[in-house]
Amino acid sequence: MGRSIPTARQVMENLSRDIMRMADLMQSGDADILKQIIMLGKKHSAEISYSGIDPYLGFVLSILLEVCRKSCQEG
């Protein structure tokens, strides 16, 4: 854990909580998709933390990476 500043995991957890507030106003189908997107965003927190990049950027990259992987798998 960081001594003076939050870790990448903590930043992404806080971001996820904020995004989840959007789900309160969404239709249930959209909210479910949003939850899955958040999971994808947090999936590479270890690599993001190790690289030292901005966790917000890492969150988006992680989603892109997972979506690309899924689309490649599905051909």
Binding site: G2, S4, I5, H44, S45, A46, S49, Y50
Partner: peptide, 8 residues
């Protein structure tokens, strides 16, 4: 300011 590496 970072701790040990923990994978997911």
């Amino acid at each position: 300011d970072s701790g040990g590496l923990v994978l997911q």
